[in-house]
């Protein structure tokens, strides 16, 4: 009888030890390519935020992140393609200024406006912001993870629209409907994931990029913690 009671007690203890374990809580997993950066450029865990930039570890680039907070990075703003000249490199101005729509300029907006503002603000601690090449921009294209999402990792790049995003590739011959404008710039459409040549005067979205300074190559990804302290 005592042996049976002891066996019963042992069985209860075994069951209790199983019950004592906490069920597995969700844990943040690092993205194989992207790391969130806060507005000062500090790395964040995949669930932390708000984040202002995304470090692209495969290309050693830092991407601007669009917002819905009506600041200069709001995803709704559009820009005509325009880059002012640089006397140091004898680059002349190209494109057509002030034909996009935004709230942060007294006149309308172009790509140079966003570049200037972002450089002045030193977004994520960087000042060399520029338009990405079509190849750099196209490297972000991926199949939508959810119905209605754009062709991009929308968990890292929210507020991306189903539309055209300017690249830096200019002097592209135009065809068809746009032939009369002769030349334009390449844009990547994140609804289709394809590239199109568009007239400079078109209003399109912009996702800026900056080259990651070599001295930051290792420090930007170090110290990333994966604690679920905040959520989206």
């Amino acid at each position: 009888m005592i042996a049976r009671l002891l066996m019963s007690l042992t069985a209860v203890l075994i069951v209790a030890s199983v019950l004592w374990r906490d069920p597995a809580a969700p844990v943040a997993q690092p993205h194989p390519r992207f790391v969130k950066l806060d507005k000062h450029g500090n790395p964040l865990s995949p669930w932390q935020g708000p984040w202002s930039c995304v470090l692209d570890t495969t290309q050693q680039l830092v991407w601007e992140v669009k917002t819905d907070s009506e600041n200069i990075h709001d995803g709704y703003w559009t820009y005509s393609w325009y880059l002012s000249g640089d006397p140091r490199t004898s680059d002349r101005a190209r494109g057509e200024a002030n034909l996009g729509d935004c709230y942060f300029e007294t006149s309308r907006c172009d790509t140079q406006d966003l570049i200037n503002r972002t450089r002045q603000a030193a977004l994520c601690g960087l000042t060399q912001w520029r338009l990405p090449s079509a190849q750099e921009l196209s490297s972000l294209v991926q199949a939508p993870a959810r119905p209605g999402h754009a062709h991009i990792a929308q968990d890292f790049f929210p507020h991306m629209k189903h539309g055209d995003y300017w690249s830096a590739d200019h002097s592209q011959p135009l065809s068809g409907h746009y032939r009369r404008f002769k030349q334009g710039a390449l844009a990547v459409n994140f609804h289709t994931g394809k590239q199109y040549s568009l007239p400079y005067r078109n209003a399109a979205f912009v996702l800026l990029v900056a080259d990651l300074p070599s001295e930051h190559h290792s420090s930007r990804t170090s110290g990333v913690t994966h604690q679920p302290t905040t959520g989206n």
Partner: peptide
């Protein structure tokens, strides 16, 4: 069940909204 996204804290498996324009 949808593909898990590293940047999303909440995983909702098969529960998804239809797409919107």
């Amino acid at each position: 069940p949808a593909i898990a996204q590293q940047g999303q804290r909440r995983y909702t498996a098969g529960y998804q909204p239809d797409g919107k324009e």
